[in-house]
Design a protein around this nucleic acid. Sequence first.
DNA 1: AGATCGCCCTGCTTGC
DNA 2: TGCAAGCAGGGCGATC
Length: 283
Amino acid sequence: MPELPEVEVVRRGLARWVASRTVADVEVLHPRAVRRHTAGGEDFAHRLKGQVIGAPSRRGKYLWIPVATTGTAILAHLGMSGQLLVQPEDAADEKHLRIRVRFADDLRTELRFVDQRTFGGLSLHDTTPDGLPDVIAHIARDPLDPAFDDEAFHQALRRSRTTIKRALLNQSLISGVGNIYADEALWRSRLHYDRPTAGFTRPRTTELLGHVRDVMNAALAVGGTSFDSLYVNVNGESGYFDRSLDAYGREGLPCGRCGTPMRRNAWMNRSSYFCPKCQKVPR
DNA sequence: AGATCGCCCTGCTTGC
DNA sequence: TGCAAGCAGGGCGATC
């Protein structure tokens, strides 16, 4: 499942393979893939035709490609299973190909949005003065953003009547953290997912943010986490980070610190993996 | 108004 | 063997 590191890998691929190219035409093959573009697929295609696209940016799990001449940007979210692939024009269509972007040059490659479960999609939006698509103005900066404010995050934890994993997954407090990296960072921090945030001390918040950054940077260094080839990067290569997960998916396997069998609890219609000894339930 | 819940979607796995 | 249920889960709108 693409979280921040995987999306960053995709962004880098787009920067290399599609930035500054001119769109020849766009084919929308599934309406759900453009559902956030409320004017519909035909409008989406029409607005992009002939435009030069810029260098991609990212915040959390969102990435966008500016269209400078129109003051808009193509916003992309990969959802659970989305892929952005740069493929030779003559490559066979993927089974779940949803959107195709052809370019007006002689590189003979095209951009494809492929998405089995259709939680992701592309859309066009006006940009705010700082270049952010207007519909993601509520998404917080992510922990790898140099402008992320650690102290403001700590104060938000103190103010909030919530628990720590909920806070980590709340994209308006901190973005880019999904179920996998939340469990990994909590394991590294020896924190139970249901610990209330109101009592967090500054050192505790600092340590947790450090582990969030460490685990994301480690994943980034090997091209992101990948499972069963559903997720691949912009050129179709899988990441390798799933081989070094300490918590996620390790139910029944020994904790890498103390050897206690890891547990999986149902939590908010998903799963939380944790060590029952290292990550004690708060009183 | 902040916190929580249900829904969207497809394919693989599991169980009867 | 075949079908149904379970599971993966980010984000958003509705609800409390």
